[in-house]
């Protein structure tokens, strides 16, 4: 690229459009690795919880889930360090990043609230209601975050995956009931998130 090249108005506008497009694609493509990271972690954690719950019969292994953000955020920081752009954000990446951060805060809050609620109350109905709805609430929140990500990225596959994981996951959850097999819903959600990363990478190639 030369600094003194005489450009026509059309050439200037083309250069601006091309540069903006390239940098937009670059930013969104570089975000794909975060979906893949969280997808892999979600899959791994769900399988670990399933194995421990299944072998001991205790649901308290679910507390391991609280280690997921503790493992995920440092790894995310590590990946971000390798980026060329220091703060590579545009409107879309800011929206999708915000959606998933909100999901994380809501999911942790719901889990903490449900655990506190069922340990304080003596009402067996509340304990049952809380115990049987936690995974349902989280899978719905996950589906919502995934579907909105699909809308923001204008990607039909991600949109449909969001609805399938949220609503389909909820239906499956009530079919499975309160047992360790419900962890497979999160294994599926993790795989969906990992594939989302692959799709984002391909969309902005």
């Amino acid at each position: 690229m030369e600094q003194n090249k005489e450009m026509t108005a059309q050439e200037s506008l083309s250069l601006i459009t091309e540069t903006l497009n390239n940098s937009r694609k670059d930013i969104l493509r570089s975000n794909a690795k975060y979906y893949m990271l969280w997808g892999a972690l979600l899959t791994m954690f769900s399988l670990v919880v399933y194995v421990l719950w299944n072998s001991t019969g205790h649901a308290y292994w679910n507390t391991i889930w609280f280690a997921l953000p503790l493992a995920g955020f440092p790894l995310e920081k590590l990946l971000a360090k390798r980026d060329d752009v220091v703060r590579s954000e545009n409107v879309i990446s800011r929206i999708t990043g915000g959606i998933w951060l909100t999901f994380c805060v809501f999911a942790c809050s719901v889990a903490i609230f449900d655990i506190l609620c069922s340990s304080i109350t003596k009402n067996p109905l509340v304990i049952i209601a809380v115990g049987t709805s936690l995974s349902a609430q989280i899978i719905l929140l996950f589906g919502l975050a995934e579907a909105i990500t699909g809308i923001a990225l204008k990607n039909w596959i991600i949109k449909i995956a969001g609805f399938l994981t949220g609503i389909g996951g909820l239906a499956l959850y009530y079919g499975i009931g309160l047992c360790e097999e419900q962890m497979f819903l999160f294994t599926f959600a993790g795989i969906v998130l990992f594939i989302t990363g692959i799709l984002v990478k391909r969309q902005y190639r």
């Binding site: 690229m1 450009m7 200037s12 250069l15 601006i16 540069t19 903006l20 940098s23 937009r24 930013i27 060329d84 752009v85 220091v86 703060r87 590579s88 954000e89 545009n90």
Partner: peptide
């Protein structure tokens, strides 16, 4: 123009 176009689309680079 290319530099300013890139910087217009990101927070910093």
């Amino acid at each position: 123009l290319a530099v300013i176009s890139i910087l217009a689309g990101v927070d910093e680079a």
